[in-house]
Design a protein around this nucleic acid. Structure first.
Lengths: 141, 141
DNA sequence: TGTATTATTGCAACACAATCGCATTTATTT
DNA sequence: AAATAAATGCGATTGTGTTGCAATAATACA
């Protein structure tokens, strides 16, 4: 809680343009508690005080811009957002070249640890990666 | 052309439920000519005789069911469909565990050849794979 | 070849995720 | 306490894909 507050404040200071609001705290909190990637509607149900859909997306996208969160598009057509753990600071920069796994039973979406190397044909340049796998997690087998 | 006709006819026979229509021939033809994955709107512009959006999707999905085509979700939120070359008959069955690459300049979406193996955490089961990369192709550098 | 069957099609309506414009609110600065 | 501008809520909008239904047309069969 307090940890988040400080963290967010730090980020706000750095950017000098973000303000600390309840919405941001709530979303950040929910993401941290969940310890997994969340969609907009998941967040809506997880957060007590109702936040408008547009606001949730705006906050999440601003988090993405600030490198606090990364986004992945699920094969269900939904965007999922997850806190950047080590991934933002590692040698790969801000390229999140890891897969995301969605359990078809419980719906949880988690970052798979193993970083993927993508073999592009010669002369091709890399811009973005989106890796998504569905199945069943160990709990829902 | 004639090749497609025979191929499609064979498939119709096998399934005993599909009929050969102009829409199907047109879509199949476009996919073959393009030699890449196409979205619904790409197909609409590529095919001379106008076909309804719903029909295109229905045809494409029926092709998927029959194993003639596979589908991938792009990070632009669009579904792309590509003819199954060898992938349908190889040892991996109908799991298309290869990446798709979309050029941000020309828009072409192609299947990358290398098959990917993703190590899931223990106890996890696999159901579906979607790997999507964007960048620039060798022509558009 | 003509007729019956039913897959296929086109149209319109719908469902859904996500975004945008704009007036209002509110966190921050001074 | 007042001024500034970021953030919010609301409603409308975009875009992709699906569905229901009546009309059409490909196939099977007499």
């Amino acid at each position: 809680m307090q940890h988040n507050r400080i963290y967010l404040l730090r980020l706000c200071r750095i950017k000098m343009k973000r303000r600390q609001t309840e919405s941001k705290m709530g979303i950040l909190n929910a993401l941290k508690k969940a310890n997994s990637a969340l969609s907009h509607d998941m967040l809506e149900t997880l957060i007590d005080t109702p936040i408008d859909r547009a606001t949730i997306y705006r906050v999440l996208n601003s988090f993405c811009e600030d490198g606090l969160v990364h986004k992945t598009l699920g094969d269900d057509g939904k965007q999922y957002f997850a806190l950047c753990g080590h991934c933002a600071e590692n040698e790969h920069g801000h390229n999140h070249t890891h897969f995301h796994f969605r359990c078809l039973n419980c719906g949880k979406v988690e970052c798979l640890k193993s970083d993927v190397h993508i073999p592009l044909p010669t002369g091709y340049t890399f811009e973005n990666f989106n890796g998504f796998i569905t199945g069943r997690c160990s709990i829902c087998i």
